[in-house]
Amino acid sequence: MMIICKKKDKTKDRLVSIVDKDARHGAKSDDKKFTGYKVNSIMSEDGFIKNINATPGNSYDGDILIPLIDEMIEQGFTASEVVGDTAYGEVDNRNKLMLKGITVIAPFKKETNKNELFPQSKFRIEKHGVICPAECRTMVWNHNKKTEQITFFFNKKDCESCKLKQKCTVQKRRTITISEHYELLKRAREYNKTDDFKEDMKQRAHIEPKQGEMKRYHGLQRAKYWGLQKINIQATISAIVVNVKRLVTLNSCGYQ
């Protein structure tokens, strides 16, 4: 007799090593997977690493930003803007840092819709309502305080009789969910259309070579120790080395 077993779902935080219990599976993309750790860092405009932190390979980059900034502030460093990639631009990061007087500048994820239906950008979102592409308005909404999201519900009768329904929803009615910090995101999206944003992103590009320098020449290509605490020491030493190199370079160029 043969017994067919379904493959179990992968455990989200699965232990991958009996000798290094902090290491985890991670992925830079669908094709680039690894086991171990990842390193996030903050670099100033003049090219110095201000803070660096190693985390398990399965950690999400967006979750690292606030702890990095808080630790940096505790050490006496200040900042008015933080420029990063898409993951750092999550609305929770933007809101929390705004309360600290810091603006997050980052791209937004591109809108995707596997059913090729109307994306959210086709809807006009007002203060107390939403207007759909067929010019129907709804002011019926629900606020989820736990997720900090507001969901607008269109009338079922309006959706069922709408000639645009097949392009809009496969459900009985369309819903639109936005963050309660929608106005903050709206201002950020408008800023991202400006030339100033393009200049900011040029600054963002400078940290990739710095990360590459630590990786290729100063030990971050491979974890030399077991355990997150020791990996953080390794990352800190790498950051100190590139900072000393940067200081020597600036001094040799007559930087005061």
Rank of each mutant, 00 (worst) to 15 (best):
A23Y: 02
S59L: 05
D195M: 09
K210I: 07
R222G: 01
R14M: 14
T86Y: 07
K156R: 15
G219L: 00
L117D: 00
K157D: 14
C168E: 01
K33Q: 10
S121H: 11
S44N: 15
K96D: 04
K33I: 11
G84A: 10
S252I: 13
P209V: 03
N144C: 08
E74Y: 08
I49R: 04
D200K: 10
R24C: 00
V248G: 05
V140N: 09
T103D: 08
D13Q: 13
S238T: 06
E116I: 08
Q221M: 01
A235G: 09
T169R: 02
C136D: 10
H206P: 03
A188C: 12
G47V: 02
P133R: 00
H218Y: 15
C5K: 15
E213A: 06
R246I: 05
G76S: 11
R173N: 11
A54N: 00
T103F: 05
R189E: 08
T249S: 14
D92C: 02
K10S: 08
N40G: 07
K100A: 08
V82D: 02
K109P: 07
M201S: 04
S17Y: 03
K167F: 03
K156F: 08
G227A: 07
P67F: 06
Q171N: 11
K7M: 10
G101V: 05
E74C: 08
D30C: 10
E126F: 05
A79T: 13
N142E: 14
E180P: 03
T236M: 12
D13K: 14
Q203T: 15
T11Q: 14
K230W: 09
E111N: 06
V91I: 10
G89N: 06
